[in-house]
Design a protein around this nucleic acid. Structure first.
Lengths: 149, 149
DNA sequence: CGCAATTATCTGTATATACATCCAATGTCC
DNA sequence: GGACATTGGATGTATATACAGATAATTGCG
C-alpha cells in the first residue's frame, strides 16, 4: 500500500545522488587529513597507482582510476608543474606517453601514506566497522559490474 | 597470516577511492541518459530539491545537497543564465538569498523525470536488484553518520 | 606500398568542487 | 546605542570532470 511519492521524494532515492553526496563528504575528510602532505586524495590515488612496477600510459592509468583519459591529462598538469611525475614518449608507439613518478613524487606518496591511513581509520570509525565493511563490499561488487559496461 | 601489502595494494582498498570511482561511472551513466533533457544529474538534483514547498536559501539548499555553499553558488550560475532558477533577497534577513524554480525550471524537472527513472532502472539492472538494494542501504547508513561529523 | 580506419592523446569549452578570504547584515553585550 | 563577534553569501584561485573535436601515429587492407 505504497502511497504515490512526489517527484522530490522519489528523487531522494536516487542512487547517483546518494553516491555523490557520500563521495563529497568522504573526499572532504580525506583531503583535510592529507593536507599536511600537500596532496589531495585524488592526487594521492593517482600517484599511488604509479608506485608499483612499470610506467603507465595515459590510457592505462585512466582505466585504472576509472576516469576519462582527458580528465587524467588535466589532472596530471599540477603534478607535472610540481615535478611529482614526469612524462616521456613511448618509443615503441610514439602516440603513447609514459607516466612515471619522480623521486619527489615517490617521496610524496611515502609522506602521505600514514596520513591516508589515518583518514581511512577515521572514516571507518565514523561509519562503524560493520557498516564500513558493508559499504566497501557493496562498492566492490558494483564497480566490477559498472566497469565493463 | 596476512602478508605485508605494498602501498599500491593497500591503497587499492581506499574507501574514498572506491566511492570516487563508482560515482564517476554512475554519474556518466545518468548524465548520458539525462542529456536529451539538457540537464546533468547534478543540475537535476539541484532543481528537484526546489520542487517541493517553500523557497530555500543558499545555505539550506547546500545542506540538503551535502555541498559547500560556495560550490552551490557556482553551480547556480549556469541555471540562472538559462533562467531555470531565480534568486531574490530574503526581506526578513537581507543577508539571505532565496532560490526558487522558474516555470521553465519546473518544466525541466518534469521533462527529465522519466529519463532519470530510466537511468535509475538502468543502473539497478546493471548492478542487480539485491546489490543495488545493498549499496543504497549502505550509502544511507553512511550518509547519516557522515553528515553530522 | 598507399590510403582508410583506428587509436592515443591533447585542446577548447563547460560544469563541479571547495578552501581562503572578503563584504554585508545581523546579533550580542555592556 | 555602539563596538565586536557571528552569520550568510560571493569572489579569487585552484583542482576535478568529461564531451566534442583536432592531431598525430599506427594498423589494416587491397
Amino acid at each position: 500500500m505504497e502511497r504515490r511519492r512526489s517527484p522530490a521524494e522519489e528523487i531522494a532515492s536516487c542512487t547517483c545522488l546518494r553516491l555523490r553526496k557520500a563521495t563529497r563528504r568522504v573526499t572532504q575528510i580525506y583531503d583535510e587529513m592529507l593536507a599536511p602532505a600537500g596532496v589531495t586524495i585524488a592526487q594521492f590515488s593517482l600517484l599511488a597507482h604509479l608506485m608499483e612496477g612499470r610506467d603507465l600510459s595515459v590510457g592505462e592509468l585512466a582505466e585504472g582510476l576509472v576516469t576519462d583519459p582527458t580528465t587524467l591529462t588535466r589532472n596530471l598538469k599540477p603534478l607535472l608543474d610540481r615535478a611529482l611525475v614526469e612524462i616521456s614518449a613511448d618509443l615503441e608507439d610514439r602516440r603513447r606517453r609514459l607516466i612515471r613518478l619522480t623521486p619527489a613524487g615517490r617521496q610524496s606518496v611515502v609522506t602521505a601514506h600514514p596520513l591516508w591511513r589515518k583518514a581511512q581509520t577515521r572514516v571507518a570509525t565514523l561509519l562503524g566497522e560493520s557498516d564500513t565493511a558493508r559499504l566497501n563490499k557493496a562498492l566492490d561488487h558494483s564497480l566490477k559490474r559498472l566497469i565493463d559496461n
